[in-house]
């Protein structure tokens, strides 16, 4: 789950050098999209609504980048940081105004069931979440390395002016990248809608974790984000085990600080990357 939340965040950060604080609210919007499709006349299963949720969030993120964030994309980093923060509080509060702050949840037929392997029981929902996260990550990785657009995106991240000279429409590429980040947030939201309570502020917890996971995995490193997500989950559980539940966040943030200070290029990255 953390991996799914972090992949899009890491992509936007790595390619565009934008820390998208609003990523959490995109996840929240994705979760609501799944929720409305589930309670609506279609009664669509959250796992089946992933593509729709991704499409909706792609469109929203694309427009936001094209018309708002693009205005300050070359300004100092504090500008984009504050701008996405402002967008996130606006989106979260508009959601609260229109949908109220009631806690909603999705209960499917398979919600309680789990797979028993030896002495372990793994809830089906968790297993499917993991599979979808892995599939999305691999799909994105393939897209970025094999397709023409993926190559254009990577070229833009290396040198904006050189990419422009080679005929890349930079503004469009940025909007596309942000849109893909949004789509991944939409997918993460659809996944979250099954196992987490759906509220307008549900995204906050994901942003902090997306931060940590992205740094652990190395910025813009898509597969790194997947590895970082798994590592983080383990660290958090062990932190809770050894120091007590209350210290879970302290341990996680201490790990983040140490990684930033000693391995800022991530656990799996290289210094020259």
């Amino acid at each position: 789950m953390y991996a799914a939340a972090a992949v899009g965040f890491s992509l936007v950060w790595g390619i565009m050098n934008v820390i998208n604080i609003a990523h959490g609210t995109f996840i929240m919007l994705g979760a609501y999209t799944s929720y409305w499709l589930f309670v609506g006349p279609l009664h669509l299963d959250p796992f089946l609504s992933i593509p729709l949720s991704m499409l909706v969030m792609f469109a929203i993120a694309y427009v936001i980048q094209r018309f708002i964030i693009n205005q300050v994309i070359r300004a100092p980093m504090l500008a984009t940081f504050l701008l996405t923060f402002a967008l996130s509080i606006m989106i979260a509060n508009l959601a609260q105004i229109f949908w109220s702050s009631d806690v909603r949840s999705i209960t499917t037929a398979y919600s309680g069931s789990s797979l028993a392997v030896g002495g372990l029981t793994i809830p089906w929902v968790r297993l499917w979440t993991l599979l979808v996260a892995v599939a999305l990550t691999l799909g994105l990785q393939t897209f970025m390395t094999r397709s023409k657009i993926g190559r254009a995106i990577r070229a833009t991240s290396m040198d904006v002016d050189a990419a422009r000279l080679s005929g890349v429409g930079v503004a469009g590429i940025y909007a596309l990248t942000f849109g893909i980040g949004g789509a991944l947030a939409g997918a993460a939201g659809a996944l979250a809608s099954v196992s987490y309570a759906i509220t307008p502020t549900m995204g906050d917890a994901f942003v902090v974790r997306a931060f940590i996971v992205s740094v652990l995995g190395g910025l813009g490193n898509v597969t790194g984000a997947l590895v970082g997500g798994l590592v983080y989950g383990v660290i958090e559980s062990f932190g809770a085990l050894f120091f007590g539940e209350g210290y879970k966040d302290v341990v996680a943030l201490a790990v983040l600080l140490l990684v930033i200070l000693f391995r800022p290029y991530g656990l799996v990255g290289r210094a020259t990357a």
Partner: peptide
């Protein structure tokens, strides 16, 4: 929401 718009 207004605060957010002011920041933007």
């Amino acid at each position: 929401v207004v605060l957010g718009a002011i920041i933007v």
